[in-house]
Every structure is written in C-alpha cells, then in structure tokens.
C-alpha cells in the first residue's frame, strides 16, 4: 500500500491515510478497508469496535505499518486481524 493512499472503512465512518505501507489487509471494524465506500455499509464486528480517533496515528508492533486517522468512526483498526495501537509520541513544545 503506497504512502498517501486514503482508505475508507466499509462498516463505519473511519477514514485513514497510509503513512507507512503494508502488503497486508488493512481492516476497520473487522472488515477490509477500501479506496471507495460501498453502497451499503457492512456489519461492525464487536471484536473491533473500540473506535478510531481523529488525528491519531496507528501502528503495528514492529512499526512497519503506520496509519493516520483522518476521519473517526466506531470501528477499530487492524492489519490481517491483528489490532493496531495508537502511536504515543512525546509531546513537544511548539517551535513554530
């Protein structure tokens, strides 16, 4: 998946931008995400329903995948069924 690619959830409002790519399937709410939203939304899996937060970056354990949530939704993000976690960066003072 090319950096910059925008993916939409097929089960909720979540939308992400790929910062670091992956060959795996990016999922939200338990269903694969797609570049276009389907005509009818799928069903949110209760196992992936903790929600996504706008402006948060989501990474896998190895740091190979990084997604930026650009629209929040009810589904939570995963790659190949493994949940992603938010990347917690040290807060920096504003330098601009």
């Amino acid at each position: 998946m090319k950096p910059g690619t925008r993916l939409k959830s097929t089960v909720c409002d979540t939308e992400v931008m790929v910062i670091r790519g992956t060959d795996g399937a990016v999922e939200c709410g338990g269903a694969p995400m797609a570049e276009e939203r389907p005509a009818a939304a799928g069903v949110l899996s209760p196992d992936f329903s903790e929600g996504s937060q706008m402006g948060k970056r989501y990474v896998d354990e190895g740091g190979a995948v990084e997604l930026l949530c650009v629209k929040p939704g009810k589904g939570s993000l995963a790659v190949d069924g493994v949940a992603l976690r938010t990347k917690d960066a040290k807060a920096l003072p504003s330098s601009d």
Binding site: P3, G4, I19, M54, G55, K56, R57, L68, A89, A91, L92, S94, S95, D96
Partner: peptide, 24 residues
C-alpha cells in the same frame, strides 16, 4: 515535498492539541 512537510507536522504536532482560546 508534501512528504517532507507532512513528515515534519505529523511527527511534531498533535492534531487539535490547542485549546479553543489559544492563539499563535
């Protein structure tokens, strides 16, 4: 490039971190 500037902002600024009254 867009990738340079986005890399800088996403790496250093927390989205919507400012309070409603903050002004720069």
């Amino acid at each position: 490039r867009h990738s340079n500037l986005l890399g800088y902002i996403l790496g250093t600024v927390e989205f919507c971190a400012a309070a409603e009254d903050d002004a720069q």
